[in-house]
Amino acid sequence: MSEDNDNKLNLEVPAHLEYSEEHVWIDASVEPAMAGITEYATEQFGELVYVDLPEVGVQVEAGDEVAELESAKAVTPLVCPVAGTIRYVNTEASDDPSIITNDPYGEGWIFKIELEDDEPDLLGPEEYAKIVTE
């Protein structure tokens, strides 16, 4: 049986991304790097109803709360796992938060950040998959 079949929630964990323990993904293969929440996070939140995006141009440190996600269940801060400068925000996701729920690794990205640290402390896909399936 493959690891994918062992994943009891059958969640997607794209191999080209890096992850934080707070369920934020980073795609550092593009510049500026893209960030969003994982499919696991969308499952935990339920349908998002409001997204408070960070401001473009703001400098953040790893561990800073940069956005707020609101669902019927709770209001949850989005903790940025990397340091850098916010360069773009996804206003479409702000206008229609269901984009994040329905396509968290694609159209549902939340912000793009110019990384300060070229080796942020993130988890690989295998490490992250272990966290969400245990």
Rank of each mutant, 00 (worst) to 15 (best):
R87W: 00
G46I: 10
K73H: 08
V49P: 01
E43A: 12
D27F: 04
L123F: 09
L11E: 07
H23V: 12
A35D: 02
Q44K: 13
D103S: 12
H16I: 09
K8I: 12
G36M: 08
D95P: 04
E107L: 03
L11I: 13
G57T: 08
L123H: 09
V56K: 14
H23F: 03
L123G: 09
A93W: 11
V79H: 05
V24L: 07
E126T: 15
G84P: 08
G84N: 10
E55A: 12
E114T: 11
D96G: 00
P54C: 01
E47L: 14
T91Y: 11
A33L: 10
E61Q: 12
E127H: 00
E43F: 14
Y40D: 07
E119V: 08
S29T: 15
Q44F: 03
E3A: 11
D121E: 15
Q59G: 09
I113G: 07
T85G: 04
A35C: 14
M34Q: 15
E107A: 10
A93N: 06
P81F: 09
I26E: 11
I131V: 13
V30N: 10
Y50R: 05
E126R: 09
S98D: 11
L78Q: 00
L78I: 14
I110H: 01
V30Q: 13
E43D: 11
W25Y: 14
Y19N: 04
I131K: 02
P32E: 02
M1A: 13
P81D: 09
E134R: 10
I131P: 01
D96M: 02
Y128G: 06
G57M: 02
E55L: 04
W25Q: 02
L11S: 04
V132E: 00
E92Y: 04
M1D: 08
V24K: 05
I113F: 07
T91R: 13
L78H: 02
H16G: 07
E119T: 15
S98W: 00
V75C: 03
E116Y: 02
K8M: 11
T38A: 01
M34G: 09
E3H: 07
V82M: 10
V60R: 10
C80S: 15
E22S: 14
W25E: 05
V49E: 06
A28L: 05
G57P: 05
E126F: 02
L9R: 12
V89Y: 05
D27R: 13
L9C: 01
A93Q: 08
M34L: 15
T101I: 13
A72Q: 09
T91K: 12
E39W: 00
I113H: 02
E114C: 07
R87V: 15
D96V: 03
I37Y: 01
Y105R: 08
L48D: 13
T76G: 00
D52G: 04
V75R: 13
D96I: 03
E21T: 09
E92F: 05
Y50W: 14
E61V: 04
P32F: 04
N5A: 14
E55T: 12
W25C: 01
D6G: 13
V13I: 11
W25M: 04
A15M: 06
K130S: 07
L9P: 00
F111K: 03
A67W: 14
I113Q: 02
